[in-house]
Amino acid sequence: MAEFGALSSFLVAAVGLAVPLALAALGETVSERAGVINIGLEGSVIWGALGGALGALALGPYGGLAVGVLAGGMAALVFAAFAVWLNTDQIITGTAVTIGSLGFTGAVFQSRFGATGLALELPTVPAWEVPLLARIPAVGPAFFDQAVTAYLAYLLVPVLGWFLFRTRRGLALRAVGESPEAAHAAGVPVVWTRMLAVVFAGLAAGLAGAHLSLVHTGTFAENMSAGKGFIAIAVVVLGRWNPKWVIAAALFFGGAEALQFALQAVDADLPYPLFLALPYVLSLAALAGWFGRSQAPRGLALPWPR
């Protein structure tokens, strides 16, 4: 199996980096299918990371995951209260939630641990090896020797696919995103559907954030979300608002991020900021390419009632 060594370690890194993007993007897929674009997703991710850290210190790693999920949901609830219930502009509200979340998580972190920049050590969530599957050469350890967050991301794909495209409630949710007037006329509660969809996206983004602090790094740092929530929104567009393509797009971005480690191993003198920029440049290139023309839900980002 030695010939798989380099490929295997690249894939392990790629999947690990893709998991938070996939979780946040899968949640956002549901929200955007209901017609709400939440730029505040980044805020849910950073609250998830901080909630995960504080939760893990008090309750252990799995308790931390749960607190992270709830913290992400709370941030999304603030967004929903304004953008859905008060019907304020989705873009501006989302931007405010992101700015505020980055600020307040920093403030809470500094109040609790001081501004000294001392690295915080958190109990981490261990990887679970799936019997047999984890033994597949190269891809086995990458996909089937991960923490529970990865398996939840895999699980969300068929569940959300089934919910969105095979159930009456899923149909109602998509109707709210395509034409809130028609959905309202048909008796679908537009505001409630949108609220629930947004909060669901926040819970998933909270898990993504908790993954960053409790699986990926084992610590918390201010601004550690580093634009993951924004990339997740690009991932939703690239995945054409369909869960199975969304996770594929997330893996693509995880691969792009993992590439920097692989290339640095080859030549340590390569300028690393250029590799850090790579996923963002790829997002732009992909949006500009054939993906950009795919159809967004028609009611996306539009207020309701108008």
Partner: peptide, 14 residues
């Protein structure tokens, strides 16, 4: 902590 100010900016927008 000075980062409070960032939070206050968000409150103004909301």
């Amino acid at each position: 902590p000075e980062v409070w100010v960032r939070g206050i900016e968000a409150l103004v927008i909301l």
